[in-house]
Design a protein around this nucleic acid. Structure first.
Length: 849
DNA sequence: CCAGTCGCTATTTTT
DNA sequence: TAGCGACTGG
């Protein structure tokens, strides 16, 4: 309502191509073919192919700008072109900053800008990075000036596992039971407090009940441990930066002078701390009061030639705000014009991704939300196929249906990678996986366990972290007896006690333990061997080799050496076949270190230590220690190195949350049931319903051409089968834009699980295979006939006497196979004896011979 | 000190 | 159902 209407663009525009999707648009963001003038780029090239509102957003460079970018509306394109446009207007690249939430988004943007600008120096110093990486840099840079309490510039960054360890430690210290104070929930409350910019003291003043006061104590203790380890957590990065910008005018001015143009992607996902940071950078002196562009004085920056600062451009979509539970505050985007009263608002409603029926369905769905900024979704793409809603019987039926649907559509010339299956909770993936595996369809799960989350990597990294920061207690405790070296819990308890008595680090207590504690000789020896090993790495006795300038390859060497000498390698080698992959991963870690050091160049990294004053030139030979710290920071801040890469030629399975920002030709959304989507939590917290609807909206709008939505009458969750209710969202999809088919099995004849079926087809009747559901919905789960012969991971039918490989147990021969819904087989394994295996779950592989 | 077993709990997870 | 933490016996 209070949006400005798009104006006629200043530059004539070539006709746009509304049928290009985001993916295709990436191609026309290629470097301009025309010659560049020395001062900049050809403006026509930068604006080429943009729609009118897109071009307007690109050209609105002065003053606050809100771009409401619907799904598939060319958002990234607008941001990248806008950066190029600014540069073409003569703004030095180093004065421009774009902030994203994910490394992936930052990398993609950076790449596209580089393409637009072409090779050369015009883009030098451009800052495209994540909020967290920016904050880490600023905090290190200004640690001295801002006098960060308890922290030095070499602070470590703790990830969520480390945080959990600290919370547990704090609970133990305070004698609070994990029964009454589940660490997960305590941690999330602490995290929420930090996101709201509440330190332990502020939190305590707001805690009125017993529970709250206890948690305030935990928060205090937690924070104390963090600082004792010279560490910050993810939330601290934001909180401390916000505080620093507020309390230190010097830091604030320095940053403002540098970044005259600020862009923020996915603004709907910002939390209060991020909002505060943005406001402070954009000109508010307290980060709270509205920033009125008109009222803001001329920049004090010497080289800005009197140009006004406070050029903040935020891009986002309130309808895709799905991280409220993590502290994201949708109000930040809804209230942008209150916070920045002179703001210009441009809506990008045109969708270039999906066909008309899909867009119409999504639009109707999201219109049920009240907390939003109304914007019309439309597309000039083809009408396309209607999204298909299918009610099925149970999760197995559902999975079967999804697989058949994918197979059928693929035959129209699509690849496996063009498909994705979305679900609300990870637990739902299993049955779909099973069905895909059964049919030999390649699939990949965008899983939470990324490379750096794996056990063996976390161990190795913990060693590195202790070397880089001996104060890192969490990491020290992780490695002190891994691999087992005879320093057990009882010993450790005494060492920790000693550390408390003497008020020293655990590391120092360990050094002193031999003298101070009456230890068994063997234990004492174990400890001194461990300490000597660490000293050897840090080179304490060899003139501090870590401090010397790093030689080529020395970081990788160090990593390799630590993996070997710590005994980790030996530990996994001894574990045999089953742990072989871990050894590969450790080798991979060494190469990632090598890669990091080869590419390490603080001066050229846009997120790196580019000069805050333009004439300050960083010339500096990094020491091995600095290199190591840089590497550690990178791997904790870039945890998704191997996460979602949809181009692997496989169907992608992921949660709805993980789907944001992606697109697929064909999408299947499963589990559209009350208490699943919307999630059961909505019962207790009705205010969360709209976020659930947005989640659904995000899912629907990922689909380019085909969309299948399923809901299952019965679903087994956590071993309990329950009658379900169709999701209310199903009924919010307009009848004229979707097809609905009920295959839920009421009064249906039985079906033959082997017969491939289209979702819309009727069920074939199988004689002697009576109805398994009675009309009143009473549950009859028994006797579900299994017609499928048990198969291995490649789909080879399994039978008695076959030689197979099990991922855990290794080689074995099949004894007898039972029949029934969950057929089991007795398998005689070569190494581990005879076991009974449920065939549907085991990932057996047939071995010839 | 370690490995196996019991019982409890249970979304989503950009950094 | 499964993953994790606490407990127990070798």
């Amino acid at each position: 309502m209070d949006m400005d209407v798009a104006q006629i663009p200043m530059h004539p525009l070539p006709p746009h191509h509304p049928d290009t999707s985001e993916a295709q648009q990436a191609f026309d963001d290629l470097p301009p073919m025309k010659t560049q003038t020395p001062g900049g780029l050809d403006v026509h090239d930068i604006l080429a192919g943009l729609t009118q509102p897109q071009a307007e957003a690109v050209q609105h460079t002065e003053g606050p700008l809100l771009v409401l970018a619907g799904p598939g509306s060319g958002k990234t394109r607008v941001i990248t072109r806008r950066m190029a446009y600014l540069i073409s207007c003569g703004i030095p690249a180093w004065q421009i900053m774009a902030l994203t939430f994910t490394n992936k988004a930052a990398a993609e943007m950076r790449e596209r800008v580089v393409h637009l600008l072409g090779p050369g120096v015009v883009g030098r110093g451009l800052t495209v990075t994540t909020f967290h990486a920016l904050c880490a840099r600023l905090l290190r840079k200004f640690a001295e000036i801002a006098k960060l309490p308890g922290l030095t510039a070499t602070f470590a960054i703790y990830d969520s596992d480390d945080q959990m360890a600290l919370v547990k430690k704090a609970l133990e210290e305070l004698n609070l039971s994990t029964q009454n104070f589940p660490p997960r929930s305590v941690l999330s409350q602490i995290s929420n407090a930090k996101n709201e910019l509440l330190g332990p003291e502020e939190f305590a003043t707001q805690a009125f009940d017993f529970q709250g006061r206890q948690i305030a104590k935990v928060y205090t203790a937690y924070q104390r441990s963090l600082r004792a380890a010279n560490a910050v957590d993810f939330d601290d990065l934001l909180l401390l930066t916000a505080q620093m910008l507020r309390t230190s005018p010097e830091v604030r001015e320095s940053c403002r002078r540098r970044w005259q143009y600020l862009m923020i992607d996915e603004y709907q996902d910002t939390n209060r701390a991020q909002f505060r940071i943005a406001s402070l950078l954009a000109g508010s002196d307290d980060g709270v009061a509205p920033v009125d562009h008109a009222a803001v004085p001329i920049s004090r920056g010497g080289n800005s030639g009197g140009r006004k600062t406070r050029n903040i451009c935020v891009v986002g979509d309130p309808d895709q705000s799905i991280y409220g539970w993590r502290g994201a505050d949708i109000e930040n985007i809804l209230q942008f014009e209150k916070h920045f009263p002179s703001a210009k608002v441009i809506a990008l409603g045109e969708n270039f991704r999906s066909t008309k029926h899909i867009i119409a369905a999504a639009d109707a769905l999201i219109r049920n939300n009240v907390k939003r900024k109304a914007k019309d979704l439309f597309t000039s793409n083809a009408q396309g196929a209607k999204p298909e809603i299918v009610i099925c019987r149970d999760e197995h039926h559902e999975a079967r249906l999804v697989v058949d649907w994918i197979k059928e559509i693929r035959s129209d010339g699509l690849a496996w990678k063009d498909f994705a299956v979305f679900y609300r909770t990870n637990a739902l993936s299993r049955v779909v996986e099973e069905a895909l595996r059964n049919d030999g369809i390649p699939y990949a799960i965008a899983r939470g366990t990324a490379f750096y989350q794996r056990e063996e990597i976390k161990h190795a990294v913990a060693y590195l972290r202790v070397v880089a920061n001996p104060a890192d207690e969490v990491s020290l405790l992780r490695i002190v007896n891994t691999p087992a070296r005879g320093i057990g819990d009882t010993t450790l308890e005494r060492v920790k006690q000693l550390a408390i008595e003497r008020d020293t680090r655990v590391m120092d207590a360990l050094r002193a333990a031999g003298d101070a504690l009456k230890l068994a000789p063997r234990t004492g020896q174990s400890i001194s061997k461990f300490v000597a090993m660490l000293d050897d790495w840090t080179g304490i006795h060899a003139e501090g080799m870590l401090r010397a300038p790093a030689a080529d390859g020395s970081l990788a060497e160090l990593v390799e050496r630590i993996i070997r000498e710590s005994g980790l390698e030996e530990m996994y080698r001894a574990a045999g076949e089953t742990e072989a992959e871990r050894l590969d991963n450790l080798a991979e870690l060494v190469s990632s270190a090598r890669e990091f050091e080869e590419n390490y160049d603080p001066a050229s990294d846009p997120a790196g230590d580019a000069p805050l004053n333009p004439d300050e030139i960083p010339v500096h030979e990094p020491s091995l220690l600095e290199l190591l710290r840089g590497y550690l920071e990178r791997i904790t801040l870039v945890s998704d190195a191997d996460s979602v890469d949809p181009d692997q030629g496989a169907v992608t399975l992921m949660t709805l949350h993980a789907a944001k920002g992606l697109e697929f030709q064909g999408v299947a959304m499963i589990g559209l049931e009350e208490n699943l989507l919307p999630h059961a939590r909505v019962q207790e917290n009705p205010s969360e319903l709209e976020e659930e609807r947005r989640l659904c909206f995000v899912g629907v709008t990922r689909a380019m051409k085909r969309l299948l939505i399923t809901s299952s009458r019965y679903r087994t969750i956590r071993g309990i089968t329950e009658r379900t209710m169709e999701s209310r969202f199903l009924h919010e999809l307009p009848k004229q834009h979707v097809t609905m088919s009920d295959q839920g099995g009421f009064s249906e004849p039985g079906w033959d699980d082997d017969a491939p079926r289209r979702p819309t087809s009727r069920l074939a009747s199988a004689p002697g295979d009576g109805p398994r559901f009675v009309p009143d919905g009473a549950q009859v789960r028994s006797g579900r006939p299994v017609i499928n012969a048990p198969k291995d991971i490649r789909g080879t039918p399994l039978s008695v006497g076959m030689l197979v490989r099990h991922p855990q147990f290794g080689l074995g021969r099949i004894g007898n196979i039972s029949s029934g819904a969950d057929a089991r087989a007795q398998i005689q394994f070569r190494d581990v004896g005879t076991k009974t295996i449920v065939l549907a779950y085991a990932r057996l592989e047939r071995v010839e011979g």
